[in-house]
Amino acid sequence: MYRIRFHGRGGQGMRTASRILGRALFNEGYYIQDAPRYGAERRGAPIFAYVRCSTNPINERGIILRPGLVVVADQSLLSIPAAGVLQGCTEHTVLLINSKTPDTSLLKQLGFKGIILTLPPLTTQKDDHFPSASCAGGAAALLRIINLPALMKAAQTELSNLPLETLQSNLDIIEETFTTLSKQPTAISPDGPVFVESHNPPDWITLPLEQGGPNIPAIIGSMTSHLMQTGSWRTKRPIIDRERCNRCWWICNTFCPDGAISLDEDRHPQINLNHCKGCLICMTQCPTHAITAIPEHSNKTNDKEKSV
């Protein structure tokens, strides 16, 4: 069985990538299973999706624990343990990273022993394009069991709700990534089941009753949300123009759902970028239109806006 996991952030189209790959394999006559896994859906939060593929009906279910291929749309997820990008990876796992410069030293530090590949830079790259197309095209190429026509037909079906021009540019990206990655030598090989003879038995415990506080699902500790760096969810960053801001202060501050806006001594609003999740509610609410948004990964910064 082939087991593929796509990791990205909400909004980067990992579900779409898994669906294009799943349907392409389906078009080629395989049994498949594809599914996204997210909690309460939030743009920018880590999510993943997975595809299983086999020549026989598939009885495995749920999260893939032993992936043959892991596609990473956003390298920043590697440093977030909860994203689980490297979960179950072995020396046979291929990691396909959407970055020109994969962070090999970090991967080594995290104990990754498999093969690292990168998605090729695109000649047709458009600003602001979602990585779903290249991730799907790349994964399809590495499996070596999908022909281009089946992949393109799958992509047309899965992306049929897009406007024609966007559809075409996504199809171009898929074709280009597929063609380029088909030329490199690494191929994913199918992997077997967990064998009874060689399995590690689970270390079950008999759960004792814990009296007193711990067994109540409550949070007593203060400031626990400080540990949750929702700043990594941002795809757009709010920038405050100090000239336009009339220091009403309470509007953006009140509306920010993450309490990420505070005031400096001059009553200028400050955004804590460790916690601002980029929802841009502050931008919509500011009466003087002092708040604008820039793509998160752009180099443009606003000097006047000093952030924590």
Partner: peptide, 10 residues
């Protein structure tokens, strides 16, 4: 939920 609700199969 999830294991079937959001999982695609033939």
């Amino acid at each position: 939920g999830f294991y079937l609700s959001f999982t695609r199969e033939p």
